[in-house]
Design a protein around this nucleic acid. Structure first.
Lengths: 256, 256
DNA sequence: TTGGTTCTGATTGAATATGATTAAGTAGAG
DNA sequence: CTCTACTTAATCATATTCAATCAGAACCAA
């Protein structure tokens, strides 16, 4: 059977829900809309062929992430407010015509969304999310390609390295999983670490965006020392002792 | 019968209702206005030809409300069904462990969404939308970086070229804006054209996915000849003469 | 009046959407 | 790995809804 016109009311309702929640379940749609599962599934299939959603077992997720607002999983919504503050502080460090690098990580993503209207900026990134967030608008966007690492949605690997070598940006804004005075900057994935290392070397200035919960944490692979950082931005949850220790490494510290 | 002057009151009443809620049903209009379903339908058909509304099964929706705009105006939803058929046919050409390239274009995107569950595939792409569509799942995804071209959401430019040079895929699935026997394959953007050209050279096999409306069209910049294509997939709206001409160029033709 | 025009309502066969059923498939717990 | 519970795709029957056609009512002009 060919579906030509099915109640657009329902499609709109589903789309609306997905804009808010990024994931819906068949059963829940049945209750909300008041139709049978079969109908809901037909609607979803239809929307999938239009490229609006992606069906998954049990329901559907939105297909084009840039449409949905609070899209990113749990991570981005955690400590959202702190991240927003940190991003605002980072904004102060950017000149209108800079060339900057944004790496993966939810705090950096928060910064990216605030740059959408800065038309003369050039933004280099190895993060799919950052690229999506900026895809429609303002700044010139250059994406470092490579193999897509699913978990972080960033590009890593040899091809990534090849491309980073060619580029030299004014400032890099970077996140990290762990920051420890003795053990330095650490993250979970070796390839990711290698990429971060390369980026640090190719940038004139390194700005680290870290919410205070990461301070003192140590992850798997190191990608630099605290002294490699030029400016360090965190929220006001950080202890003064930690911040003092970081300042001693000749790092400018900003608390937002 | 041509309707010249049917009660303007009714049309106005319907328009008024649609301004409030974006969906009306035939039955409900009958009760409100007090006429037969046949009349209501005639009114709706008339309003549709004037571009005021859109008829759907069971009633009508307003023609250009902000709400449903992203649903119906997205390019990807145009000829969605043909594109889906073409994508299904393309699926047949893929071996489980292939390395394939997907370029930008909505038909290719339709193919991408169908590959989400093929776990042993390696997919190379220069399209942000393809990357997003595949980001969560299944295949290994390698993205060709470069400067993001806003309109098509693809990566182009010298950095893109640099990376494509390094890679050699089994099969490339490609779309085009224009396909003409004499003028060959054409697209709107010179940088895009250059990228496509490079991709063609780096692939062992070239598969072109084209809905039939593109046949005979000529766009701005050429990026190859019809003979460069190995397999050509289109929907059943293509004329036999055109297909014959394409076959004469030593191209395998598939209609889906 | 007659004839023509225009709209409306009714009828009918075809098209379409929906929900139920069933067999196959998938995820998750043990 | 197997089992269980849930989800899905496919098919079918049913109830709406649609388009087309025709007949009748209202209106106007000669």
């Amino acid at each position: 059977m060919l579906i030509k016109d099915l109640a657009p009311e329902r499609l709109e309702k589903i789309a609306q829900l997905l804009r808010k929640r990024h994931v819906v379940r068949v059963q829940e749609l049945c209750e909300i809309i008041g139709v049978s599962p079969a109908t809901v599934r037909r609607d979803l299939t239809e929307m999938e062929t239009r490229g609006l959603i992606r069906k998954v077992h049990g329901g559907a997720v939105s297909a084009n992430p840039r449409m949905s607002e609070p899209l990113f999983d749990d991570k981005a919504t955690l400590r959202a407010e702190e991240k927003q503050h940190i991003a605002k502080a980072a904004l102060e460090l950017i000149e209108p015509r800079d060339t900057i690098f944004l790496d993966g990580g939810s705090t950096v993503l928060a910064l990216a969304t605030q740059l959408a209207s800065m038309n003369h900026l050039t933004i280099v990134t190895n993060s799919l999310r950052v690229a999506s967030a900026l895809s429609g608008s303002g700044p010139r966007v250059i994406v470092i390609g490579g193999e897509l690492r699913t978990l972080s949605q960033t590009f890593v690997g040899p091809l990534t390295g090849l491309m980073i070598e060619k580029l030299h940006v004014d400032t890099v804004f970077m996140g990290t999983i762990g920051l420890d005075i003795a053990k330095g900057l650490t993250t979970t994935d070796p390839r990711e670490a290698y990429t971060k290392q390369q980026v640090i070397q190719s940038a004139r200035r390194v700005v680290l965006l870290v919410d205070s919960s990461k301070i003192g944490a140590v992850s798997f692979v190191g990608f630099g020392a605290v002294a490699d950082v030029d400016t360090f931005i965190t929220d006001n949850g950080a202890s003064k002792r930690d911040l003092q220790a970081i300042r001693k490494e000749n790092v400018a510290v900003v608390t937002a």
